[in-house]
Simulated assay, not measured.
Amino acid sequence: MNLLSTVRRIAVVAPHPDDEILGCGGTMARAAAAGIEVHVIVVTRGQPPLFEQSLVDRIRRETLHAHAMIGVADTHFLDFPAAALDQVPRSDLNHSLSTALSRIEPDLLLVPFVGDIHLDHQIVFNAAMVHARPRTSSGPACVLAYETLSETNWLAPGVTPAFIPNVFIDISTTIDAKIAAFSSFETQVKPSPDERSIDAIRALATLRGATVYRHAAEAFVMIRQVG
């Protein structure tokens, strides 16, 4: 059965702007085209002096442009400090993210993978899972972890949690939309063979698709599903 066929509302939790496009931009575009309400929660924002304000403002514009291109219904910015979530009281992050997710009430929750090399990703995964605890009937029925190029396979698979996908979503019709949306992040696109290059994004989609005999796919790890 098509996983998206029973979904009304999706929330994608992104530690940083562009993680959501890299991880599941094709799925987001396919869902939006099917009339599913897609929300993105961007948890962090670069802050001076670590990031120049002009760059931060430019990335915010790039984010909104990319989301408009693939039909995101609403983008929620939490504005916690990027690359410094380990310095934020965990209760503050949990409360802010849970409040945003409670307002959205997603059927499908997409989160970064706990084994990503960036500590922000690991912390955001845990915060999302705090909200996703099955304590009420209104919680997300399905939780999937997405993979992010340059994050998911750069820690130490085999020693740390390895990304072993068991859910694949066909993005044959939306891979070009995903690539176009990521291209909007002019500050983030790198030349090949960097993992954040257009060639790498297409290659990964082709590989994940071939795994399940599709032209292109995005891969996920199933965390929980309630039928």
Rank of each mutant, 00 (worst) to 15 (best):
M1I: 08
M69D: 14
R60I: 07
P134H: 10
T6M: 09
S183C: 08
D194Y: 14
A217V: 03
V167M: 10
D116L: 05
P134S: 12
V167L: 09
E37D: 15
T174M: 08
A216K: 03
T63P: 02
S98R: 04
D86E: 13
Q225F: 07
V114D: 04
H76Y: 06
V130I: 14
L155H: 04
I41V: 15
R103H: 14
E151H: 08
P161S: 06
D116F: 02
I123V: 09
L78T: 07
R103N: 13
S150V: 10
V38E: 00
D57A: 14
A127E: 01
L93S: 02
S54Q: 13
V88D: 03
E37C: 12
T211A: 14
D199F: 08
I21S: 03
L149C: 08
D92C: 13
V40W: 03
D79M: 07
S183Q: 11
G71V: 07
G35I: 12
A73H: 09
E195Q: 12
L93Q: 05
G26E: 04
D116R: 02
E105I: 08
R133E: 02
H95K: 07
A132N: 00
P191H: 08
S192T: 13
T152I: 10
D107H: 12
L109Q: 01
A66L: 08
R61L: 11
A200C: 05
G26Y: 01
L119G: 03
A219P: 10
E62L: 08
A200I: 00
Q47Y: 02
C24N: 00
A180R: 11
N166K: 06
E20K: 04
A73E: 04
